[in-house]
Nucleic acid binder design. Structure first.
Length: 497
RNA sequence: GAGGCUGUAGCUCAGCAGGUAGAGCAACGGACUUUUAAUCCGUAGGUCCCGGGUUCGAAUCCCGGCAGCCUCACCA
């Protein structure tokens, strides 16, 4: 039977439901408990002896009367008895519907049920002969017809394209998918709670920028008609949050979407969620402590231990996370002397990198990203970056070639990035002006933003700033090997008609 | 953007030395008041991703396109 015939069969049942005087699209349904909570009421079940204990009158269970609502995910009809498994967003439970027990009208409804329909159930919670906790229905409430057949009941929806295009089906039927996205929500809630506890305030900056600054990435371009100007979707939150530091918001953060017009991969989606937090009178070490706290509390909020499964192995998030310097790691993995440009160039050549015409710090960083980052299982804070590749970061007072920056690496992924923020307007202006040799313009963070310089000239408090890639953090905390598993609707080419 | 892999029933997948398409689940009809991926009997269901080509004959071979996945590049 093809798709049309499958739908026709369901529409026929929809008509029968109408003929029974019921709305096949349901309506308000009050007083039902989440299935997980109903399952907890198992302990209220009591054994009751009917009078005296005689042969033929064994003790019987008596359980609480419960009301549930959910989607039918499995159906087992056995003559005048029907077993359903219904699922809501907290769990699943078996429902037993007997023709004699529910009466003729309810039984007529039961015969119209298809996999995927939404139903409400009233009944007694107790065990079947085989010991399965079940709701023994005494009333059925039809809540919504599903006109489309669900995916295969055991294997589910496997095709990665269909899983993304029809995320509703992925969520409704595939084991663990809804749970992972609910866990993402808990992580984000925990981050907000932690920041609030530390005295941060949340703000909303503009997403349409005249200058796409604060990071090195190609922006999406759009157009405002009334002003007749091109605008960019933001690629970072940084420069507006720092303006707010100037304005006196001493602890401020934004948790929101940024957009980068770059490739798509298991670790990249063109729009993704970023946290940026800025703390006046702090520095990058302050931010290190904050990053650690945000992550540890997020893990605790999901009810997990600090040793999390990751693929075949696990990640140990027990604080304190390792702290290593950039040069130390470069020396260890690339076998070069980080202080000697000639040694670094030699190492880069060994790694097969093109070095001609490139700034020494650009070469150094390409070598670092080629040889070191993949090896960092972490969590590890990599500290003290070459200054030339960090145009928004304060330099070390006693070592101006080193920027007070760290990145947090976990499983080779850059999860967080933090600076002691540069607040010297003259140096900032100079760095915006300097285009590093070997870097095309769109790959540079150096984009002149005159208003931002003006803001710095009015005095930005010394500060620490932290950015966290929320999607990647959620990947690590939910054992998701691709970013698409933690973004509800990742970018796909539109379906063709 | 480059290379590799994949695309067959509503879903999950077989079939690909070229001979006219198959299973499981779902669906439909029948039996069944304790099943749990229920079971048993029966029925029906296809633009083999799209477009060309080779051939007597193409799901299968060739070319082009579309979509997804993986790797690489850019990026977080």
């Amino acid at each position: 039977m093809g798709g049309e015939a499958l739908e026709a069969a369901r529409r026929e049942k929809l008509q029968k439901i109408r003929q029974l005087g019921l709305d096949p699209w349901g309506g308000r349904f009050d007083g039902h408990e989440p299935i997980a909570r109903i399952r907890q009421r198992e302990k209220e079940i009591r054994m009751v002896a009917p009078g005296d204990c005689q042969i033929g009158h064994p003790p019987q269970e008596q359980g609480p009367h419960v009301r549930a609502a959910g989607r039918i995910v499995l159906q087992r009809p056995t003559g005048k008895l029907l077993f359903l498994n219904i699922r809501d967003w907290t769990g699943q439970i078996q429902v037993l519907i007997g023709q004699r027990q529910v009466g003729e009208k309810n039984w007529a409804v039961a015969k119209c049920l298809d996999l995927g329909d939404l139903v409400g159930v009233d009944g007694e919670l107790k065990h079947t002969k085989t010991g399965e906790l079940s709701i023994f229905a005494d009333a059925l409430h039809f809540l919504c017809k599903s006109l489309e057949p669900p995916p295969a009941k055991f294997k589910g929806l496997r095709d990665p394209e269909l899983r993304q295009r029809m995320r509703y089906l992925d969520l409704a039927y595939n084991e663990g998918v809804l749970e992972r996205f609910l866990r993402r929500t808990k992580i984000v809630e925990s981050i907000r709670r932690t920041l609030a506890g530390e005295g941060f305030v949340e703000v909303e900056g503009p997403t349409l920028h005249a200058i796409a600054g604060g990071a090195a990435a190609r922006p999406f371009i759009t157009h405002h008609n009334a002003l007749d100007i091109d605008l960019y979707l933001r690629i970072a939150l940084e420069l507006h949050l720092k303006r707010l530091l100037v304005g006196g918001m001493e602890r401020v953060y934004e948790l929101g979407r940024v957009y980068r017009n770059e490739g798509i991969s298991p670790r990249h989606n063109p729009e993704f969620t970023m946290l940026e937090a800025y703390q006046a009178y702090g520095d990058y070490r302050t931010m290190m402590d904050l990053a650690e706290k945000l992550i540890v509390e997020a893990i605790q909020a999901t009810g997990q231990s600090l040793r999390l499964p990751w693929g075949e192995g696990e990640i140990d998030f027990t604080p304190p996370f390792a702290r290593r310097t950039y040069d130390e790691l470069l020396a260890e993995y690339a076998k070069v002397d980080p202080a000697e440009p000639a040694s670094v160039v030699e190492g880069a050549r060994r790694a097969g990198l093109e070095t001609a015409g490139k700034h020494p710090d650009v070469v150094k960083n390409e070598l670092f990203e080629t040889v070191v980052t993949d090896q960092l299982a972490g969590p590890v804070f990599v500290m003290d970056y070459p200054a030339a590749i960090c145009p928004l970061t304060k330099r070390k007072t006693d070592a101006p070639h080193i920027a007070e920056r760290f990145e947090l690496f976990i499983q080779g992924m850059e999860v967080a990035n933090a600076y002691t923020e540069l607040n010297d307007p003259d140096l900032q202006e100079e760095l915006f002006r300097t285009q590093l040799a070997g870097l095309p313009e769109e790959e540079s963070m150096a984009r002149m933003d005159r208003d931002f310089i003006r803001a710095l000239r009015h005095g930005m408090p010394p500060a620490g700033g932290l950015g966290i890639g929320i999607d990647r953090l959620v990947m690590l905390l939910t054992n998701a090997q691709t970013i698409r598993e933690v973004i509800l609707f990742p970018l796909l080419r539109p379906e063709q008609e």
